[in-house]
Write a protein that binds this DNA or RNA. Structure first.
Lengths: 248, 248
DNA sequence: CTCAAGAGAGAGCGGTGCTCTCGAAATGGA
DNA sequence: TCCATTTCGAGAGCACCGCTCTCTCTTGAG
């Protein structure tokens, strides 16, 4: 239910947005650690104390930026998900499209990406309110896997000769995760409402972290004198991850 | 060539070490962003300006801590490498031992881990002097792969029916990375003196980033309400990564 | 129209990184 | 041994930070 906003309320929303915009600008220019309330206020022609009418403190402003970043990344990946659905490629191609969207957004907004997947700010712990936004980007990958599963284009790990004793390198299906991990996966699948077998969910969680690792390394410059053909490198790795999940 | 140190020089080294120790303590307690030169000086009974005789600035102190952290992580993984060589398990078991060492060190020193694999400090770019220390931890994994390759226990990607046209899910060997990536891999292999085929090196780089992703997610709390059986989860993922490299 | 609530300005607190100057102490060559 | 040079710690000070408090002015609901 959306109340009618008075002029005052509208002004408040606009100023709040202006503060966040300016903060985002400083974030992109200087990084999170150098984000300064006073500088933001100065740029907006306010005095610093006035800013505290809108955000209780620096950390809260940062939290707002984090939530927004999660949502922006979620928007990007969901858009890629829908676009890839339209042009109806293979499931692996869809997976790749979502991965690419993730990477592209991160490269375009490195400091915001650092905000959500970099080292957490000092003593700061992300409030529970961010978790909903946080799962959106991951869910796009889950969706690809779920649709592939529904279409029979997903090989569940643990199927196909992984059960018989020792490690068998010739087995077609990848070995499944051990039971305690599967238990976590079941719990997670239920909580998120995912219609996917536990071994797949377990693999998806791991792959999710690995994808973030690939993107983080690139965004944070760890590939500086290591990989030059970054796009092709990433695409290849993304397909490998898709195979690990069981996509065909 | 180690010169004989006068009393003065020795004192300087001791004080430098004391500063770094205290800084590390504050780092562990508060995180990098809250690391304060003045607080370090205060704890050491100095005045803040005296500290500038030892480090040109806060960033330089941070750089010293980063280098030390790289070395500590390198020590941990190399120790695991040697220990696993002694008890002579399978190559995958060695791989897993090195991965475990990496994870254990990271969990034991989360803030130092954040220093090296988290978001880079504001405008700060790691000086070239850190790169030697930086590669040490990665090299332990390279060594495992190289020894497995020498022992014939490594299947090179691109071998075994990946060359024929379209993607073949039944193929035993994983598909190789595309040519530009292989070119990067060759260059890297030569620069680091690695006796490993380019497709394997390419896979190792990707897997290296993915391993960091797994560890980072755990250290930074991203698995908080997602994975409970973290150790088993990690072990399973590490083995999957080993398989991606081609280890058998 | 009244009056409480909201919003901005300003001063001020303790903290930060960093610079500069000054005096004391250690060092090493004459 | 003596003395010039270097090294070091201390202190004051600058500009900035997050944050609080108070005071004034404006707004809008009753």
């Amino acid at each position: 239910m959306t109340r009618i906003q008075g002029a005052r309320e509208r002004a408040r929303d606009e100023i709040t947005a202006a503060i966040k915009d300016e903060a985002r600008r400083q974030l992109a220019a200087e990084g999170a650690a150098r984000l300064s309330l006073r500088a933001v206020a100065r740029s907006l022609g306010m005095v610093s104390s006035a800013l505290y009418r809108y955000f209780p403190g620096r950390d809260d402003l940062l939290t707002a930026l984090i939530t927004d970043s999660y949502d922006a990344l979620g928007d990007a990946t969901e858009a890629a998900l829908e676009a890839s659905a339209a042009q109806a490629d293979s499931h692996i191609a869809r997976w790749q499209a979502v991965c690419r969207a993730h990477r592209s957004w991160a490269l375009a907004h490195p400091h915001e990406y650092a905000l959500i997947y970099g080292s957490p700010v000092p003593g700061y712990a992300a409030p529970a309110s961010t978790t909903v936004s946080a799962t959106r980007a991951a869910r796009a990958l889950l969706t690809v896997a779920a649709e592939a599963y529904a279409a029979g284009a997903l090989r569940v790990p643990g199927t196909d000769g992984a059960a018989r004793g020792g490690p068998d390198p010739e087995a077609k299906g990848a070995p499944s995760a051990p039971e305690p991990v599967l238990e976590d996966a079941r719990e997670l699948a239920e909580r998120l409402g995912i219609g996917l077998p536990a071994p797949v969910v377990a693999e998806l969680v791991a792959v999710w972290a690995q994808l973030a690792g690939l993107v983080s390394f690139e965004v944070f410059g760890q590939f500086e004198r290591v990989v030059a053909a970054r796009e092709k490198f990433f695409d290849h790795a993304a397909v490998t991850l898709a195979r690990n999940v069981g996509l065909t």
